[in-house]
Each structure stands twice: as C-alpha cells, then as structure tokens.
C-alpha cells in the first residue's frame, strides 16, 4: 500500500485522515446531540462537553494537516466513466463538506469563548478566546453550530450513499480507491 495518493488509488495517509475524521465527526455529532439534553445532575454534564470540545479542537488541527496533505499529495483523478457535470458537482460537494466542517468547528469555538474564557483541551493545553466578537455571540454561534451540523451529517449521508451506489450498482472503483 502506498503512502501518497497515486493517480488511481488513495494512499494510506489520506485513508486514515478520511476514515478517522468520519468516525470522529459522527461521534461528535452523536455526543453533541445527546449532551445538550443532559440533566444538571448527570455525571456526564461536565465531562461530555469537555470531551466534545477537546476532540473538536484536535480534529481542527488534524483537518488543517489534512488540507496540507491534500495539497502535497494530489487526489486520484476522477473516474473517466463519470461525466464532467458529475465530476464538478462531486468536487463541489467535497469542498462543501470541508467548509461546513471548518465553520462548525469555528462556531463551536465561538460558543465557549464568548465571555473570554479559554477552551481546555483535555487539560493538556488551552485555546484562548478572541473575546466577544458579536453581541449574543454564544446564541448565534450555537444556532449556526447546531444547524450546520445537521446539514453536514445530511450531506455526508448522501456522500456515503453515493459511494455505495458506485460500489454496488455501477460496480466501479470509487469506493475501493478509499479502502
């Protein structure tokens, strides 16, 4: 298995970034969905948000590295069997997924830092606040964080269904290139 991407196959680094991100994002979504309804007396009331934030910040750093890696190791060429229109829309969907991910992470950061507090990442280090940038920051950032997360998961589901369609119906290399 190659480290860098080739013209026909994703390399090990890209695959790890892709599948670990997928796993973590789905996990963060699930935890986020669950933790906002925790009662005050739950033992998870403090722990779940702490982990959600810590892992989210680490994912941000991983995503920056992932972007750099994508730059240094260009992805395989699109399959010749798909039309230009399909290739372009697929590209647009992939870029939208990255953009949503970044906006969700940044809005999450803005919720917790709206009052000048830093975010503790697993008590290893902390990420400082940029101060209150807009009024009602925690509420506005909270709405953006919530709704874009639904959108991201919706789009990622379409992305996954499309990959399965390529694999089982078109029987082409699309999914295999990422496995």
């Amino acid at each position: 298995m190659n480290v860098k991407d080739t013209n026909t196959q994703y390399g090990i680094v890209t695959k790890l970034f892709h599948w670990l991100s997928a796993l973590i994002i789905i996990g963060l979504f699930g935890v986020g969905f669950w933790m906002v309804d925790l009662t005050y007396y739950s033992q998870w009331y403090k722990t779940a948000p702490h982990w959600h934030k810590s892992i989210g910040i680490l994912l941000f750093f991983a995503t920056v590295l992932r972007g750099l890696w994508k730059y240094f190791s260009p992805s395989p060429a699109p399959l010749a069997s798909s039309s230009i229109l399909v290739q372009r829309s697929v590209k647009a969907i992939h870029n939208t997924l990255y953009l949503l991910l970044l906006v969700i992470m940044f809005s999450g950061y803005l919720i917790s830092t709206a009052d000048g507090r830093a975010i503790e990442v697993f008590n290893w280090f902390s990420i400082g606040s940029m101060g209150e940038l807009i009024t009602d920051q925690e509420d506005i950032a909270g709405l953006i964080h919530e709704y874009l997360a639904y959108l991201l998961i919706g789009l990622a589901s379409i992305h996954a269904l499309a990959a399965l369609k390529h694999h089982f119906i078109d029987k082409d290399q699309t999914l295999k290139r990422m496995l």
Partner: peptide
C-alpha cells in the same frame, strides 16, 4: 429575559 447574565456565556445560553 434574554438579558440574563451569570458571568458565564455557556451557562447563560
């Protein structure tokens, strides 16, 4: 009521 302020934005939210 939205102007509640307990000096912690996450709690206020």
């Amino acid at each position: 009521t939205a102007s509640v302020d307990s000096n912690h934005s996450e709690r206020d939210k």
